[in-house]
Every structure is written in structure tokens, then in C-alpha cells.
Design a protein around this nucleic acid. Structure first.
Length: 900
RNA sequence: GGGCGCAUGGCGCAGUUGGUUAGCGCGCCACGUUGACAUCGUGGAGGUCAUAGGUUCGAGUCCUAUUGCGCCCACCA
């Protein structure tokens, strides 16, 4: 036994046990009619991803849930996989080929995609390997990738299904355009950030009187090149008479009309707005309504195009400066005011997005949202913490159409085909199905749908068909995750058994991107909720509250932490400091919590293993008889089972930090600090050994979901018959007959007494090797008996030589230090050692404390309203407490008297 | 313009439906190495729970307002 090291060394055990679990297929789940399923689908990390603290927290929580439920007897399925992350991955590969001075256009679509797949093959499983380092018990046999053939079939199917319902359409709209990624983005992908900008007041001269102007205010003067109107509010007295007149757009000399629309805010700026239909979402609406010209002034990369005349090819921000100079020269720039504005930023590259008129594909969301709203309102899907319900509903109830086409190459290509010869288009559909959907709207005239390239155009028979160049938004595949991963659209056994899933664990950032859309997709394609609970955890930040990011350089790498502190330490620490839904502020120091705890557990186990006698049959530990146990033993078992119960309750409510602290408190401060210390006195005793073993063995099982590696390592070193993994054992059943409030109270008296004696020793500076005598005065027979029975513990833990128990104090004990514990008076005769002044001060402080408490309670009891209105229990409790305190106080006062 | 979160001992945080003498970890002070553990043990100091009102017999916990910090949403030209 001596070969067990005094420090837990995670490096030696983690990989070993992970391999053991994997080889024994312990993470795999199959439809099993004898068990209830418990399913979690992982938020699929990007293939480009590398493990960061957000992942670590997110996946630790999922792993705790899944391991716990598995040990609770569920068929627990944790579906893993990765997301192809269209733009992100394309960007990575573009950067890679840029080193060879190549652009994707130089390679062409097919060659470039080959490169991306090659990249995916080489690096795409990095994050999976890292999740394994975290101990995640995912069902790797089912690992999915959103670009897998089967998964892609589901995506195409969904597109066609929505198409058939008329929920997908193509339109020319001003959308969010990233001039760097050169693609459209959805509204969610272009989060607004506040910028310090200016409001520029520009004079637009009247055509019939060039000396008169209308002044417009704008934050983006360069867009004036695309202006095709100026709008005012019809009620605005300042402008009433000029509505319908013509202005001459400066620099461009285009004639534009003054129109009126109630949407214009008279209070903002000058009340007159320049209208740029092709470059502003509002102006887009105005332009369509008033039949204005749409003039696009930008190249896709946001340099100005030929419509910008002499500003052509300038960058948008450079052009702004030049235009302002030119306006100044012409005395058309009235003034500049500083102004805060917010602008969309590309969520992948942070470039300021450009509102840009282009033809894109959209999903009509409103009809789809209805059941998703209902489900949450009716509580079929619950958010933890609840407050996110409101955020979700607010978004869902104001849902906008979803722009799903992306002008990139990496992704699911839109299954639409166009016929060159008759100008029809085709929506591609599944093989063997020949029915084509043909819709007669402005934009989709003669469109052809087909999963693979159709042989010929259904309209004219030509075989000159070309597929739409765009791919679908990444989230258009992720929203199918909870069922497409189980084989949908096929009706697989797994799908039937595991869907709907149980809990979705994620961060707030993707509620709209993903959670909300999954709920929509669940109803639309499965006819049911995708999960019943959503647990939203906080964001991981550094210790100053900043989000962790590479560019800020404040990253704490989970793998480094695992290397330095161990995986279990990482997991336990993370969970301990994350209270429900609150953001987590991290510093490396915080991982000491888990490391130290793991070490404590390790050493407690080490102690127990070193002391178990060879002959003992530990498998008998299941059959302990309560009548044969002493107080300490009954106490620790009661504590154990209460702990197991409390952990269960905490996990049901997703209060992970509470579960962790309950376990910490039990293992460290009940089991190690007290039970093991008492056990040392009878360590040769068979019952003692059995109890030590039993408590350890059961604790390990409850701890396992939190700290999988160390618990398996210790488990495997236990001398039991059960050589299978700890994973396949159950969370201990609570032996209700061993729960005892009385035992817990009685033991607490012993503990308090020991602490009290230690305290006096310390205050009076009585060395530990100095044997002392104590006199206890108590008139309660039961309590006296408890103390008598446990005298040996008190003697050993408080280093007391003799204990004398009296019913009453016949004569004063001179030269003693004294105290009270409940109704018990403690005297420690310390002839020659006692510092009378110190002792007086001690007693006075005690008197003050007790008096304060007594006064507080008395004032409560004297208050008739209180005794009348407060629950009986509360009043009674205070009465009882007060009685005890009164007695204590009287005793302490007497003791003080004696010192005089 | 709406919505949300957070303000508790030096630091980081708990505190579930209002009733505990307000807890935990780190740090601090003092003592300690009798073989589970110094990644440890023992004892201790330290808080008018942001401010002002209110509801209540009773408020860290509920309501209103204020201050400070942070976040989200929105078509503020």
C-alpha cells in the first residue's frame, strides 16, 4: 500500500481510463425498451474550433448530466459531432492558400472545395480529441458532421419541403453584406456595435432656385451618390410647400424629387432625409413604396463602382473623406456634429457590414414561429434560468424573414437549377422522385428542384442546366441537429427512441442562431419539440470581466489547465464557481479549488486503503446493521445519504455549483475532518473499516459525474469484487432508515464541544502535549449519556486526559477557563496556566454576544404581532433557543463572578 | 427607445419559495509535522448585505425610485 503516492497525479491516470471506457463501449447507447432514454445533443463545435473555456464549461455540464443519468439507470445518449461552419472554415482555408499567393477563384470551385475537405480531414477532429481530454462521455460511434452525405440529404429535404409549402422565396432586398467575406449575412450574423461617428449636414440645392437648399443630415455621406430622393414628413410645416419639388444632387447632378412619408421622424436632424434605396434597409422600403430608382454604388468589396463617377474604385471610407472635402469646397457642407451610431459587424471577421441590395433566398419565418411560441408559453419547453423565456419570446414574436443564401463555396449548395435554354429554374429533389415543383411567382418562374442534377428541363427538355451558385447558411443545417443526427428523414429506430431529446445545454449567444430555430424545425419537420429543457449557462470571462478572446490575449487554455491541475480539477473548479446562469470570472488560481479537493479525496482513499485489513470482505458493506453502529458511524451515514439526496435535488434544478459544494462539504468537512478522525481510534475494528469503505465507495459514485477520472482510479483500487468501471454502477440508493436528524444533532454536540475545548486551549496557549482535565456540567440525562458514550472521541480529538460529568456544580472551580455549548457548561481547570485578564475578556465578549442575541429574540417575543402572525414553528423555535441562551448567559455570568 | 443581469467581510463568490446569531473559497493572524493529505491540520479576526423610501409581525431575499458597472435587442437617417 505504501506505493500509493501522497499526491494525486492526474497525468498517470486520465488517458488510461478514457481509453478503457472507449474500448468497452461504455458511452454507446442503443434503443432499449427496458430503459428510459435520456438524450442530449452536443452544440456541435465548429470544425475549425479549438477547445476554449466556454467549451470546457459547456461540455463539463453536459457530461455531468449524462453521466449522472446514465448512473441513474437511463439509456443515456450524448450525441456528438461538428459543424461545417461555412464562412469560418472557408476563411481558414483561404488564409492557408493565401500563403501560396492563391485566391479561391484561382483554384476554381471544385479544386477549392477539395482543399477544404482535405483541411477538414487533417484538422477537423482536433476539437473532438480535445473533448476526449475533457472526459466527455459522448457516443462517438454516432459522431455526425453537418456536411456528411446523410446529413446533407436532410438539409436538401428541408429546403424542398419548405419550398413546397411556399415558405422559401427569392427576392431583391437590402441585406447585410460583408465586404470582406463577400457574402450576405442574416440579421443575427451582423450584430450591431456602437461607434463614434458624426452627423453631417449637407445642403441639396433646388433645381429651380440653386441658391435655396434643403439640408439633410446623414452619418454616411458617401451614400449620397446613390440618393434618388429626399423624404420629409407630410405633417412637417417646414417642408409642406416643397413636397414634390426637384433637387439637384450635389457632386452627381442627378435630379431627385422631394417625397413625403409618415415614417420620417420630424425631430431627427433637419427632418429631411436623403433616400438611398440600394444601401439602407429603410430606404429600401421607401424606394419600393414610392417607386424610386435603386442605384447601387458599391462593388461587392465596398469600393465604389462606376455609378460613383469620379469616386469610382475608392474604398468607402476613403471616398467619405474625399466627398466631404468636395462638399466643403462647394460650400455645401453646413456643419458636422459628433454622433453615436451603431453599425452591423460581420460576426466572423468583424468588418463593418454594408447594407447592400442583392438577390437572395429567404425563409418566411412568421408561420413557422407559431408552434415554437406556443410550446414555450405552455411550458412544454422550459428555460433555465427562466428569464431567457422572455428573451426568446420577444425574438420569436418579432421574427423577421431569414436570409439563407451565402455567396461562398463551402456549404450545402442550394438545390435550385436554372435552364439556360428556356430560362426556367429547377429545384433539385430526391432521386427517384420525378415530381417537380413549379411555382409561378415573379422570382421563381419555372424554377426546378432536384437533389442531383436533373437530366433535362421539365419545361423545354433542354439538358443545359446550371445549379444556383449559392450555398445555404450554416445554421440552415444546424437547426436540424436534434433529429438529422438520428437519421431523419428516415424513420430510424434511434430517432424514434431518442427524440425528443431532454436537455439542451448552451450559452446565451446562440439562443437566436440555434436554440430558437431548432424549436421551429422540431415542430415543422418532426411535429414535436426537439428538447424539453434548455439550460443556459454563463459566459466565461477573465478575472476583470472581459470576454476571453485570442486578440485580447487573456485566454486561459483548458488543455494547459488539464496539464497543470488535472482534468477533474478543471471540471470541478469550473462547476463550483458557476452559479446558475451567471457569467464566470476565471483566473488560473481558481483551479486550485478542484486540485486540492481531488488531492484530499485521493489521500482519504489512500488512508482507508492502507488500513483495510486483508481479511475483510468489503462486499459485506451493504449489510450494516444500524443497531450495531456507534454515534459517529450513524452520523456519517446519515450525512452521506442526505448528501446524496441533496445532490440529486440540486442537479434536477440545474444548480451545479450547489451540487459541487454539497459534495465538497461532505467529503472534506464531514468525512475527512470528523469521521476519519474518529475512525483512527478504532481503525483495527472491523465495523469501522466497513463504514470507512462504505462511505468512500458510495461517495465515489456520486462524485463520478463531476470527477470521472480520479473516481475511476480509486474505484479500481478498491478491494471489491466489482471490477467493472465505476461508470456502469448506479448512483447509490438512499437508505432512508439511515437518515437521522437526531444522530446528526447528537454528533454535532460532540463536535461543538471539541471545538470549544480546542478554542480555549488556543486562547490560553495551552500546548497540545499538555494534558488537561475538563469538567462538564449538564442536567440533561440524555446529553450526559451521549457525552459519556463518546468520551474517547472528545479525549482524543481535543487532547483531554479526563472528563468529569456533573449534574450540578457544587462549588466553584477556581483557576479555570470556562465556556458553554448549548446547555452544557465546560470548565477547564488551569491552575497556574490561566491568564485571568484574558479569561475575563473572553467571558465578557461571550456575555455581550449572548446578550445581543437574547435581546433580539426577546424583542421578537414581546411583539404581539409576531407571536400572533408568525407561524407557530418559528415562534416556538425562538422560544426554545432563548431558553438555552438564557441559561448559558446566566452560567457565563456566574463564571465571570467566580474569577473575581 | 425597450429588455435583462450584477452591486454581500481585503479579493472572488453562495444565499431555492421572506423567519439561519448572514455562509463558502482565497488571502490575513496565531499555533502545529502524533505516519492519509503542507495541494495539510487546529483556532481566530474581518460584513450597518450599493443608497433612499415602502410592503410585512419579520427583508440580503418582495415593491418603487436613485447611483455605479455590464450585457442583449431595435430600420435613431
Amino acid at each position: 500500500m505504501n506505493e500509493i503516492p501522497t499526491r494525486y497525479n492526474p497525468k498517470e491516470v486520465e488517458d488510461k481510463w478514457y481509453k478503457f471506457w472507449e474500448e468497452n463501449k461504455l458511452f454507446h447507447a442503443e434503443p432499449n425498451s427496458k430503459k428510459k432514454p435520456y438524450t442530449i445533443v452536443i452544440p456541435p463545435p465548429n470544425v475549425t474550433g479549438i477547445l476554449h473555456m466556454g467549451h470546457a464549461l459547456n461540455n463539463t455540464i453536459q457530461d455531468i448530466l449524462i453521466r449522472y443519468k446514465r448512473m441513474k439507470g437511463y439509456e443515456a445518449e450524448w450525441m456528438p459531432g461538428t459543424d461545417h461552419a461555412g464562412i469560418a472554415t472557408q476563411n481558414v482555408v483561404e488564409k492557408q492558400i493565401a500563403k501560396e499567393k492563391l485566391k479561391r477563384q484561382d483554384l476554381g470551385r471544385d479544386k477549392f472545395l477539395e482543399k477544404v475537405w482535405a483541411w477538414k480531414e487533417e484538422y477537423g477532429s482536433t476539437i473532438i480529441k480535445q473533448l476526449k481530454k475533457l472526459g466527455c462521455s459522448c457516443d462517438w460511434d454516432r459522431t455526425r458532421f453537418t456536411m456528411d452525405k446523410e446529413y446533407s440529404r436532410a438539409v436538401t429535404n428541408v429546403f424542398i419541403s419548405l419550398w413546397d409549402k411556399g415558405l422559401i422565396y427569392q427576392d431583391d432586398k437590402v441585406i447585410n453584406w460583408c465586404p470582406r467575406c463577400l457574402t450576405a449575412l442574416s440579421d443575427e450574423e451582423a450584430p450591431h456595435r456602437e461607434l463614434d461617428g458624426n452627423l453631417y449636414y449637407i445642403k441639396y440645392p433646388f433645381k429651380d432656385n440653386p441658391k435655396e437648399f434643403i439640408v439633410v443630415a446623414t452619418t454616411r455621406p458617401e451614400t449620397m451618390l446613390g440618393d434618388t430622393a429626399v423624404a420629409v414628413n407630410p405633417k412637417d410645416k417646414r417642408y409642406k410647400k416643397v413636397i414634390g419639388k426637384t433637387l439637384v444632387l450635389p457632386l452627381v447632378n442627378r435630379e431627385i424629387r422631394i417625397i413625403s412619408d409618415a415614417i420620417i421622424d420630424m425631430k431627427f436632424g433637419t427632418g429631411a432625409v436623403k433616400v438611398t434605396p440600394a444601401h439602407d434597409p429603410n430606404d429600401d422600403i421607401l424606394g419600393k413604396k414610392h417607386n424610386l430608382k435603386f442605384i447601387n454604388i458599391f462593388h461587392p468589396d465596398a469600393r465604389l463602382n462606376e455609378n460613383a463617377l469620379e469616386y469610382r474604385d475608392m474604398d468607402r471610407f476613403e471616398a467619405r473623406e474625399v466627398i466631404l472635402e468636395d462638399l466643403k469646397d462647394q460650400k455645401l457642407l453646413e456643419k458636422i456634429e459628433p454622433h453615436k451610431l451603431s453599425a452591423g459587424h460581420c460576426y466572423r471577421c468583424h468588418t463593418i457590414i454594408e447594407p447592400y441590395l442583392s438577390r437572395q433566398w429567404f425563409v418566411k419565418m412568421q408561420p413557422l414561429a407559431k408552434p415554437a411560441i406556443e410550446a414555450v408559453k405552455k411550458g412544454r419547453i422550459k428555460f433555465y434560468p427562466k428569464r431567457w423565456t422572455k428573451v426568446y419570446l420577444n425574438w420569436m414574436e418579432n421574427i423577421q424573414d431569414w436570409c439563407i443564401s451565402r455567396q461562398i463555396w463551402w456549404g450545402h449548395r442550394i438545390p435550385i437549377w436554372y435552364c439556360k435554354s428556356c430560362a426556367s429554374s429547377v429545384v433539385s429533389r430526391e432521386k427517384n422522385k420525378t415530381q417537380y415543383a413549379v411555382r409561378d411567382t415573379q422570382y421563381v418562374k419555372g424554377i426546378i428542384v432536384s437533389e442531383t442534377k436533373p437530366e433535362k428541363c421539365p419545361h423545354c427538355g433542354s439538358n443545359e442546366l446550371v445549379q444556383d451558385q449559392d450555398v445555404l447558411d450554416t445554421w440552415f443545417s444546424s437547426w436540424l441537429w436534434p433529429f438529422a443526427t438520428f437519421g431523419w428523414p428516415d424513420k430510424t429506430e434511434a430517432l424514434k427512441y431518442f427524440y425528443p431529446t431532454d436537455c439542451l445545454v448552451t450559452a446565451q449567444e446562440i439562443i437566436f442562431f440555434w436554440v430558437a430555430r431548432m424549436i421551429i424545425a422540431g415542430f415543422e419537420f418532426m411535429g414535436d419539440i426537439p428538447f424539453s429543457q434548455v439550460y443556459i449557462h454563463g459566459t466565461v470571462r477573465d478575472d476583470t470581466g472581459k470576454k476571453m478572446s485570442k486578440s485580447l490575449g487573456n485566454i486561459i487554455d483548458p488543455l494547459e489547465v488539464i496539464n497543470e491541475f488535472g482534468c477533474d480539477a478543471l471540471r470541478f473548479s469550473l462547476v463550483s464557481i458557476t452559479s446558475t446562469g451567471q457569467d464566470v470570472f476565471l483566473s488560473k488560481k481558481k483551479f486550485e479549488i478542484g486540485r486540492n479537493f481531488a488531492n484530499k479525496l485521493w489521500n482519504a482513499s489512500r488512508f482507508i486503503l492502507m488500513n483495510l485489513s486483508e481479511k475483510i470482505d468489503v462486499d459485506l458493506c451493504q449489510f450494516v446493521q444500524k443497531e450495531k453502529l456507534n454515534l459517529a458511524e450513524r452520523w456519517i451515514l446519515s450525512r452521506l445519504y442526505n448528501t446524496i439526496q441533496d445532490v440529486d435535488k440540486a442537479l434536477e434544478d440545474y444548480r451545479f455549483n450547489e451540487a459541487a459544494s454539497i459534495l465538497y462539504e461532505f467529503v472534506w468537512h464531514n468525512f475527512c475532518d470528523w469521521y476519519i478522525e474518529t475512525a483512527k481510534l478504532n481503525i483495527k475494528n472491523k465495523t469501522t473499516q466497513i463504514i470507512l469503505y462504505k462511505v468512500l465507495e458510495k461517495s465515489l459514485r456520486v462524485l463520478h459525474p463531476f470527477m470521472p477520472f480520479i473516481t475511476e482510479e480509486i474505484w479500481q483500487n478498491l478491494p471489491h469484487q466489482n471490477k467493472g468501471s465505476i461508470m456502469i454502477n448506479c448512483i447509490p440508493h438512499v437508505q432512508k432508515e439511515l437518515l437521522s436528524m437526531k444522530d446528526e444533532k447528537d454528533m454535532q454536540l460532540i463536535i461543538d464541544l471539541v471545538i470549544c475545548i480546542r478554542n480555549i486551549r488556543h486562547e490560553m496557549q495551552v500546548q497540545l502535549d499538555k494534558k488537561i482535565k475538563i469538567i462538564l456540567v449538564i442536567d440533561e440525562k440524555k446529553a450526559a449519556k451521549t457525552i459519556e458514550e463518546n468520551a474517547s472521541y472528545i479525549k482524543n480529538l481535543a487532547k483531554v486526559e479526563t472528563i468529569e460529568i456533573l449534574e450540578k456544580l457544587a462549588k466553584p472551580i477556581v483557576q479555570s477557563a470556562s465556556s458553554v455549548v448549548g446547555k452544557l457548561s465546560v470548565y477547564i481547570p488551569l491552575a497556574g496556566l490561566i491568564d485571568v485578564d484574558k479569561e475575563k475578556a473572553r467571558l465578557k465578549a461571550k456575555i455581550e454576544e449572548l446578550t445581543g442575541f437574547l435581546n433580539l429574540n426577546n424583542s421578537k417575543l414581546e411583539n404581539k404581532d409576531f407571536t400572533k402572525k408568525a407561524p407557530k414553528e418559528v415562534v416556538e423555535n425562538i422560544r426554545i433557543k432563548n431558553e438555552t441562551v438564557k441559561e448559558s448567559l446566566a452560567q457565563v455570568k456566574k463564571n465571570l463572578e467566580m474569577l473575581k
